[in-house]
Amino acid sequence: MLNKNISFTAMDVITSVYNYFRPRILGMVVALLFLSVMVVAIAFTGWPSLDQIPQNLEDQSNIEGIGMLIFTDFVVPFEILSIVLLSALMGAIYMAKGDDNQ
């Protein structure tokens, strides 16, 4: 449903655009600066030729390999990680629960 009372002047547009951008402009500029640095870095880096990669084209699935690795080479970090995860969860629950009174 169109309402004829609603109308925008150019100034309103500019103001609203300005109000939208004003708190964001610094973030935008910095983000773009960072992006440009990254893109330039990626684009101008001589990556190794693509012939050799990816090597396992036939077997696209790598779940098996990852599983093997986790339970062989990385079993200790894996266990430690489980403890970290558990304690983080306990900590989170403790913090989020707050006092019993509330």
Binding site: L26, V30, L33, F34, V37
Partner: peptide
């Protein structure tokens, strides 16, 4: 955070 990011970018440049 903004300052850190700016700093890193400028440093790289």
């Amino acid at each position: 955070a903004t300052a850190v990011i700016t700093g890193v970018s400028l440093l790289v440049i």
